[in-house]
């Protein structure tokens, strides 16, 4: 088992290498000149040329990539062009809201979506099934920001129950913490939940049609028992897979959700950095998000061995 995990971890190295090279070259060829942004509105061309030289933006590609990669390997993602602060510090001070938001969403969504998918499969063809599937398809059909505004309108303005924006750390109290996360999580989780519910339903249907389930049912086992003990257990692998892959949706959604709800997390850092061409920050966050995504899916892969004894490592 340990050897397997290590092997898988090593296998992520080339993937992350490709990401690193890709991210670096992406921004190397970017048209925006950070020197112009730093210089400000009243700058002259000489000011810009001077800043350009100072930042080392004139060095050749490989040299800059080398410098950058060496730094990254030592935990140094460079200095933000705009705030003059280390990228690791900027990311560090914004990690908590994003981790809190994504984890809450992930857990709550899975807790809701998997049972709904199971229910839909169990009651296949009935109005319950159709309703669940309709909600799931609708979840795919609405841009997250529209949903977010509608939620705010409903639950913060018309019914002033929940805060409009912002983030409160769990250290400042649990109730304020969670009340700030409910609406963002709902906006963020809908599409993710839709995906999970659909896949859960499909894989449950697949398993339910297998002979051994029919046998179990014929043996007289109660429906619920069949469903949970046999069917869900066997459908677990595709469900786990989609939970892992769907994290990409969460990460993409975080960018929009944090902007609407003014949550000071990595998603907003990303948008700000891209709009300002803050190269080191963009590189840092893409690398971070990608690493997180790869690791989540690695964890999912490893969990297969626990979920399904037939999977060998």
């Amino acid at each position: 088992m340990l050897a397997y995990i290590i092997r898988r971890l090593i296998a992520t190295v080339p993937v992350m290498g490709v990401v690193a090279l890709f991210v670096f070259s992406l921004l190397y060829i970017a048209p925006g000149d950070p020197a112009a942004m730093i210089a400000g509105d009243l700058a002259t061309s000489e000011d810009i040329a001077r800043i350009h030289a100072k930042l080392g933006l004139d060095e050749p590609f490989l040299l800059r990539f080398g410098h950058w990669l060496w730094g990254v390997l030592h935990g140094d993602l460079g200095i933000s062009i705009f705030t003059n602060l280390p990228v690791t510090q900027l990311i560090g001070q914004r990690l908590e809201p994003t981790v809190a938001l994504t984890l809450t969403t992930l857990v709550v969504t899975v807790v809701f979506a998997v049972p709904l998918g199971v229910l839909a499969a169990w009651k296949v063809g009935t109005w319950i099934d159709r309703l669940v599937m309709l909600v799931a398809v609708l979840g795919f059909s609405l841009p997250a920001f529209v949903l977010a505004y509608l939620l705010v309108l409903a639950f913060s303005i018309e019914l002033p129950l929940l805060p409009v924006q912002g983030y409160v750390s769990i250290r400042d109290g649990f109730v304020p913490f969670i009340s700030h996360l409910i609406l963002p999580s709902a906006a963020l989780g809908l599409i993710y939940g839709a995906l999970i519910a659909r896949v859960t339903r499909a894989s449950m249907l697949e398993v339910l049609s297998q002979d051994y389930i029919r046998t179990a049912a014929a043996k007289g086992l109660a429906d619920g028992q069949v469903l949970l003990r046999h069917a869900l257990k066997n459908a677990a692998v595709p469900i786990a897979t989609v939970i892992g892959i769907g994290v990409a949706l969460l990460i993409s959604g975080v960018i929009v959700t944090e902007t609407v709800f003014a949550i000071p997390g990595i998603g907003r850092l990303t948008v700000d950095a891209i709009l300002r061409r803050d190269y080191p920050v963009i590189q840092g966050v893409i690398l971070l998000f990608s690493a997180a995504y790869v690791l989540v899916n690695l964890a999912v892969d490893i969990s297969y061995t626990l979920l399904d004894p037939r999977v060998r490592y």
């Binding site: 002033p160 129950l161 969670i178």
Partner: peptide, 28 residues
């Protein structure tokens, strides 16, 4: 940051509990 899996489970459970019990203007 110290997010342990077990802690997380408790935390999420508590989260859902609180979601139902929220008083208006709790955040003011």
């Amino acid at each position: 940051m110290g997010w342990s899996l077990r802690g997380l489970g408790r935390w999420a459970a508590a989260a859902m509990l609180a979601a139902g019990l929220l008083a208006p203007a709790a955040h003011a």
